[in-house]
Design a protein around this nucleic acid. Sequence first.
DNA 1: GGACTAATGTGATATTATAACAGTCGTGTC
DNA 2: GACACGACTGTTATAATATCACATTAGTCC
Lengths: 158, 158
Amino acid sequence: MSTIGFSEHDHASCIARAVRDVEARCEEARLQLTPVRRRVLEILLDGHRAMGAYDILDLLRREGLGSQPPVAYRALDFLVKHGFAHRIEKLNAFVACTHPGADHAPAFLICRDCSAVAEAHEARVALDESARQSGFAVESAVIELEGLCPLCQNGAGA
Amino acid sequence: MSTIGFSEHDHASCIARAVRDVEARCEEARLQLTPVRRRVLEILLDGHRAMGAYDILDLLRREGLGSQPPVAYRALDFLVKHGFAHRIEKLNAFVACTHPGADHAPAFLICRDCSAVAEAHEARVALDESARQSGFAVESAVIELEGLCPLCQNGAGA
DNA sequence: GGACTAATGTGATATTATAACAGTCGTGTC
DNA sequence: GACACGACTGTTATAATATCACATTAGTCC
């Protein structure tokens, strides 16, 4: 699927499925999943963790898909805007969305050891309640919890 | 109290009180509230909103307290480390803590109109519960809600 | 085909943050 | 008093992240 893949397992097929899913959504919503945008999505899915814009740009460069920062940022903006990826503020980095479609603003669980990022959806509700009570009208939320994932707590190290 | 103050009201006295409070805590904890650190705290209190490191640095420069980025960053690191200020990831900016002492990791309500930042403490609990259930060990949390504060919802504009 | 919008290519630059190392200053020790 | 030590500061340089501006290309509608 890519020049990057070191971990073969069934990762490739799960990426392929995710890409097809996004493809379908784009078609439905009349969005253009152009080569660069598609490739950036694949890179994020393949990386399977939060990646910096310049990490992604490096890969694009090697593949001749773009060499200047705006190329990466524009693709990332597109993916984030339409919910196919998320920006992790704490890391100045990006992850592919693991629940595309569920129109959401999830919480993220970031492992400081293996850098894995998980989405947690239940977390939102209580927060909105709390803010609303104070009269504050929430429009967007950044909820990022850093710590150790279950695997790394056991010394697995992902 | 400072060369910056445009809004006179009783802001000055509330800043003075906050500074004295931090002073006391530093004395107790054997921390050095040096001139630069103290001035950065005052600037944050006076600004009364999230300020970028370079905004602060500009003010320090005019006062001859330091001219290079590390000066501002070191003072901010100190204040954040000891809970006298907080970093707002979403804004790459800093605010003075409004509840120093309560050893906390609060949620922030950020008004996109007037840039005011409020701390909300009730919000935490539900999140920790949620994360814990997934087996993830939370060590630090970034919870930032952007929207409109009650004043700006009324067209006040703070 | 002409007008339009969306996307890309590219060079330059803005913004945020840190590394590295030398100098200063107080404090304790002998 | 000389010294060693630690914490802080001053300064240069540079890294890392992000955006602006403008020219060009590609697709779409009429």
